[in-house]
Design a protein around this nucleic acid. Structure first.
Length: 118
DNA sequence: CCCGTGACTCTAC
DNA sequence: CGTAGAGCCACGG
């Protein structure tokens, strides 16, 4: 066998790579990550992978819903940690709404990524 | 094999 | 800008 820590599948590893590719201070949606990994319509799968992801270095906090909302339940531990991590990176987060506040989503950008407020 | 579940998304109202 | 409903997909019982 190659390595005991080998990825479960190439698809999964592509998803993880897409998440790691999100620049600091930016966020991307589950669906966009899936799309980038060549797996359209697999947003829920991305979520499932994140839920079981053991890698502490993975920037999971940069992944949010398509509308910018935090996927965790408001007030939950994951919710607070994600808000906190994003804010530390300079992302403008509306904690009350549980949503990333940013400039209007650019439709023409190849990467559906929101930057920190220019 | 059917059914319920979930860190989702899109369309309608 | 907010809620409601249906669609979607992988997974476990």
């Amino acid at each position: 066998m190659p390595t005991p820590a080998a990825p479960a599948s190439s698809a999964e590893s592509r998803i993880l790579a897409a998440i790691r590719a999100i620049p600091t201070g930016c966020v991307a949606s589950y669906g966009e990550i899936a799309r980038r990994a060549g797996l359209a319509r697999r947003a829920r799968w991305v979520a499932r992978i994140l839920a079981g992801n053991p890698d502490p270095d993975l920037p999971w906090h940069r992944v949010v819903r398509a509308d910018g909302r935090i996927a965790f339940a408001p007030g939950s531990r994951g919710f607070r940690e994600q808000c906190d991590r994003l804010r530390r990176e300079g992302v403008d987060v509306d904690v009350a709404k549980g949503r990333v506040r940013s400039r209007p989503a650019p439709v023409d950008v190849d990467a559906w990524l929101w930057g920190p407020a220019a």
